[in-house]
Amino acid sequence: MIRIHGTARSRAFRCIWAAEEAGLPFVLVETGFGAALRSADHLRVNPNGKIPALEDGDLVLFESLAINLHLARRAGPPLMPEGDDASRVLQWTLWAATEVEPAAMQWAYHTYLRPEGERDAGQAAQGASGLGARLDVLESHLEGQPHLLGEAFTIADCNLAGVLYGAWSNRFDFGGHTRCRAWLERCFNRPGALAARKLREG
């Protein structure tokens, strides 16, 4: 049985969603923040002292998007396509981590994550601008297709949308990025996403 360590109100949400999309049975090992992350048991599965982590038989993984790629590989197509599209999945997954998430988190920290007295409006604006520039790329890419790789939803959509969940759920101004907004709505209203959202939002 797959074991996902974390809480749905963290990046573990992405992994719960991916497991639902993959149709793989799993248990959520509820692991919050703080002292629990420094316990010997948790450091065994994630030596970084963070969540999430995954156990799948003898395999132990950390990093949410790597976990998702593993779950998708287990499921196979269409969630994890083959050939050149498998490389495109890696491209969009790495783009989500290196280009989108830093800007999204800068906006998030200074908009709703940090206590109000620790927020910096200039930092929030800078994060919003950076995220907007990445959304320009995504908006152009989505022209004429419902998902990142074409007609089919893949783990690339799950990974990138998962990174954007905080912005989407906390009313980031998507402005003229209408394709991006419609794509996120499609992604987050899939049955697998709704099951994961129920845990996170409930």
Score class of each variant (00 low, 15 high):
residue 110 H to G: 06
residue 144 G to M: 08
residue 24 L to S: 08
residue 135 L to S: 04
residue 25 P to V: 11
residue 6 G to F: 00
residue 142 L to T: 11
residue 175 G to P: 03
residue 169 S to I: 09
residue 197 R to D: 02
residue 128 A to P: 06
residue 182 A to R: 15
residue 152 A to L: 02
residue 184 L to I: 06
residue 134 R to P: 02
residue 148 L to M: 06
residue 74 R to W: 02
residue 65 L to G: 02
residue 132 G to E: 04
residue 58 D to N: 15
residue 103 A to F: 00
residue 140 S to N: 10
residue 199 L to M: 15
residue 155 I to Y: 05
residue 108 A to K: 13
residue 197 R to S: 07
residue 149 L to S: 01
residue 119 R to I: 08
residue 25 P to N: 11
residue 18 A to S: 14
residue 161 A to C: 07
residue 71 L to F: 09
residue 12 A to C: 13
residue 38 R to S: 10
residue 12 A to S: 15
residue 150 G to N: 06
residue 145 Q to P: 03
residue 55 E to S: 15
residue 177 H to F: 00
residue 115 P to L: 05
residue 26 F to P: 13
residue 199 L to H: 12
residue 131 L to H: 03
residue 144 G to N: 13
residue 126 Q to A: 15
residue 9 R to G: 12
residue 26 F to N: 14
residue 59 L to Y: 11
residue 2 I to E: 01
residue 65 L to H: 07
residue 110 H to M: 04
residue 16 I to D: 11
residue 47 P to W: 00
residue 31 T to A: 05
residue 63 E to F: 09
residue 130 G to K: 11
residue 139 E to G: 02
residue 150 G to V: 09
residue 73 R to W: 04
residue 65 L to A: 07
residue 141 H to M: 08
residue 51 I to Q: 03
residue 17 W to T: 14
residue 17 W to F: 08
